[in-house]
Simulated scan of single mutants.
Amino acid sequence: MAPASFWNSSKTVCVMDASGHLGSALVHRLLRRGYTVHAAVYSHDEVQRYKRQSTEKEDLRVFHSDPLDYHSILDALKGCCALFYSFELPSDHPTYDEFIGELEVRAAHNVLEACAQTDTIDKVIFTSSATAVVWKEHDEGHASDVDERNWSDVNFCKKFKLWHGLSKTVAEKTAWALAMDREVNMVSINAGLLMYPNLSIKDPYLLGAAEMFKDGVLVTVDLEFLIDAHICVFEDVTSYGRYLCFNGIINCNDDVVKLAKMLLPSSSSQDMFNDDSVHQQRISNGKLRKLMVDFESGLQVTSKD
């Protein structure tokens, strides 16, 4: 847990994109914890929605930022000590393919370059995915254990058209390369499948889900836990590198049935992956669990002394 001296209610942070499930929830949690928040959103409709909220909150500022427009990113980052960055799919292109992969990589490059040019930025919390960790070739029946030290194999992802894993892997590697070259303090959160209302079977994370299930690496994360993880790695000065983030594992038939009912509520199917065996968990989030042992997710109370 970060020392008490870390807390400063005047600290300003940026959340980009602030319109997604994670981004919007992060904005509200950070405001409750006493931060001033720059909410950077891509959609003009979302800008208007946030502006209606900002009239009631002096510590919330709204920016229209295009991840492909370097100068709009700089505007949102001005005066901020940290950036929480996550890539959201464009509303007119709601699935992953080669085009979106190129877009995500360019966006990651622009964002890290802008952070390098912003003197006040002390830390970047880069949201990636467990799909940037789990995909690789392995000997039949000999899948090895994985943690945040592993990277998905780009050629493997291309071969099997695992576009989500490919995009997340290349974008995160691009961000890390630039962060190291420009000496930007960056930490990444490699999140499992985000569980939220109306989660769809078409969620791009689920491409290859049956294979992840059999390999014991199909993991999920609740929104509140994911938010806690982001704030913890930001506030804890000892955080570094990558962190696999999940609080659920799907590796037996009961788990599959629960997920199937969520994804296909109108379906009577009870065997989403047609596999009733139990698969050994082969993925670890031990590094994150250790960091979060003493983390307090509630509202921070600052001393009046």
Rank of each mutant, 00 (worst) to 15 (best):
C232L: 05
L288K: 07
S9K: 14
M272G: 08
D69W: 08
A175R: 08
H109L: 10
E211A: 14
S24F: 12
G34D: 02
I201V: 15
D276S: 11
Q117A: 14
S5P: 00
K173S: 07
R29Y: 01
Y42W: 10
Y35T: 03
V27G: 08
D236C: 12
N150A: 14
L199Y: 06
C252N: 15
L89E: 09
Y196F: 09
Q280N: 06
S129R: 08
E102Y: 04
Q280C: 05
V47I: 08
G165L: 02
Y50P: 05
T120P: 02
Y205C: 01
H142G: 00
M262Y: 00
S91G: 09
G23F: 02
C232M: 04
A4L: 11
S303D: 10
R52L: 13
Y35E: 13
K78E: 15
N155K: 15
E140T: 13
S129E: 04
A179H: 11
E88R: 14
K304N: 07
S144M: 09
D294F: 12
M180Y: 08
K202E: 09
K202S: 14
F6W: 15
E56V: 09
H38V: 00
D294E: 10
F84R: 08
S152P: 09
F246H: 06
D254I: 01
K173I: 00
F87Q: 10
E224S: 13
M16I: 08
K11Q: 15
